[in-house]
């Protein structure tokens, strides 16, 4: 009787001890993450809530009126706002073109890099460098050294062949920005596709050769289907970043019409002189919602990718 009581008491204290150790283990894991988590909340989520609130107000810095709560009026005015519609259309065109072309160029580069040749490592590094250049620097480089009508390399080449100089940034503002974006983002796509190509089982390609497939046939029927998740991943990550492009537009085309996307227009309507902070905030919320939709699709693709591996 006595011994049974002692053992059950010991069992309870043992269970408690286990629970205490598990709690401590949990904190050991959580604690190192906390500073980063708090920082992220402070610099992203709190401002987001403020933006959400501002988007429901009429708030202008050029008038003495106090900030006024107006409900969803800002949002209601968006469909009728020609500038907003233009900016949204530019955003769509810019993102789609930049993602699509950088994906194509990146895939072609990846295919070239996915074979052994002398100096492979050096060339791979050189091909990655555009991605490492700061967006503002990239914008200035292209504006002054490539596109410029007087000093630009492209016009110099055109002149060599007897063509007249073209002020690219003025005549083709959207195309000019897209070219620079493709130049910067192709290396990113190249790295993702290259990872896909190098993860490919070589014996599968050998089996296809033995089975009589041509080079193009085995690329189309074997390699491309296997690259699909990588191409999707590149598309989504690229789209999330490229929907937010601002620097390139500011540097290359400035305030010219034709290449103003939503982020640029948001800046212009608020701190850029428009002074309509409430309205600009509602644009921001729209961009955030669009990004969340894209990111959600992205996460689903990522989980599919991991499922395929297991």
């Amino acid at each position: 009787m006595t011994s049974a009581t002692t053992s059950s008491a010991a069992a309870i204290s043992h269970e408690e001890e286990v629970r205490r150790l598990e709690r401590r283990e949990g904190w050991k894991r959580r604690l190192p993450i906390l500073p980063a988590l708090i920082f992220t909340i402070v610099v992203t989520q709190i401002p987001f809530l403020f933006t959400l609130f501002y988007s429901l107000t009429e708030w202008r810095l050029d008038k003495p009126d106090p900030r006024k709560f107006i409900g969803v009026d800002n949002y209601a005015s968006l469909p009728g706002d020609k500038f907003f519609r233009d900016a949204a259309w530019v955003s769509v065109q810019m993102t789609v073109m930049a993602v699509l072309f950088s994906l194509i160029v990146g895939t072609l580069l990846a295919i070239l890099l996915d074979r052994k040749f002398f100096g492979q490592g050096l060339i791979r590094t050189l091909l990655i460098t555009p991605f490492l250049v700061m967006p503002v620097v990239a914008g200035f480089m292209w504006k002054t050294q490539m596109f410029n009508a007087t000093f630009g390399v492209i016009n110099w080449v055109l002149n060599l062949f007897g063509f007249d100089s073209i002020e690219f940034a003025t005549r083709f503002p959207l195309a000019s920005v897209v070219v620079v974006l493709v130049w910067q983002w192709s290396p990113f796509m190249m790295l993702i596709v290259l990872a896909g190509l190098q993860g490919q089982d070589q014996s599968v390609l050998e089996a296809a050769r033995v089975d009589g497939a041509t080079t193009w046939g085995s690329f189309r029927q074997i390699t491309l289907p296997q690259l699909r998740p990588f191409l999707e991943l590149g598309t989504l990550l690229g789209a999330i970043y490229l929907i937010q492009v601002y620097d390139h537009i500011e540097v290359i085309v400035g305030g010219q019409p034709g290449a103003k996307n939503l982020p640029f227009y948001i800046a212009q309507r608020s701190i850029g002189g428009g002074n309509r902070f409430g309205l600009a905030s509602s644009y921001s919320i729209i961009v955030v919602i669009a990004s969340i939709i894209i990111a959600n699709i992205g996460l689903r693709v990522l989980s599919n990718l991991l499922e395929d591996d297991s």
């Binding site: 014996s203 050998e206 050769r209 497939a213 041509t214 074997i222 289907p225 699909r228």
Partner: peptide, 28 residues
């Protein structure tokens, strides 16, 4: 290889991952 009229079975089987069994077998 494609002109030798041979068929090969690989150690890791080297099946085409994106194809069904029927498509794998009918590939050649």
């Amino acid at each position: 290889p494609q002109d030798r009229d041979i068929a090969m079975v690989f150690q890791n089987y080297a099946l085409y991952p994106s194809m069904t069994v029927a498509q794998n077998m009918g590939f050649a």
